[in-house]
Amino acid sequence: MFENTWNRIIEWFKDRSERAKLVRNFNEAARNAFVSGSVPTLLKADFSKGVKEYRHDLSAWINTGFRVQAFTGRPLSKAEMQFIGLTILSDESLIRRLIALGWDTLEVHDNKGTYGLRWKMMDHVVIGGILPEYD
């Protein structure tokens, strides 16, 4: 019992560190792309509360949302937000990593408008086949 609890504590700290590293890497790549002029808009990833209904077996205790904010200076259209979201969701390795690190909700919104879009990550990846122990 003690060992199990100890493992969980260690696992939690590791996951926290990995999650922060992933967000940092994403933001760094976005900043580099913006500074070099290869993309017109700066993207920023952050943690968010997430949606309770989207939870899965690997969901973290808190902050299960992966929020991507686009600094556009104008409200983004639904199609634009949808394209950014679906681009992230179509990257299999990224989405697997996000799910493994405890995220369950992807959010995309801009810095001006009122609305954003949300996706349930589990709907966009099949991991049951390689994670039999979590079935």
């Binding site: 790549a29 792309a33 290869s38 993309v39 017109p40 950014i84 390795s93 697997r96």
Partner: peptide, 25 residues
């Protein structure tokens, strides 16, 4: 195969590619 393996196997996440794709694809 566990969560750790899943994380290690996906070390090569191409964030630059994802960001480029978001605007140019």
């Amino acid at each position: 195969i566990n969560k750790k393996d899943l994380l290690n196997s996906s070390e090569d996440v191409d964030f630059g590619g994802v960001i480029q794709s978001s605007f140019h694809a």
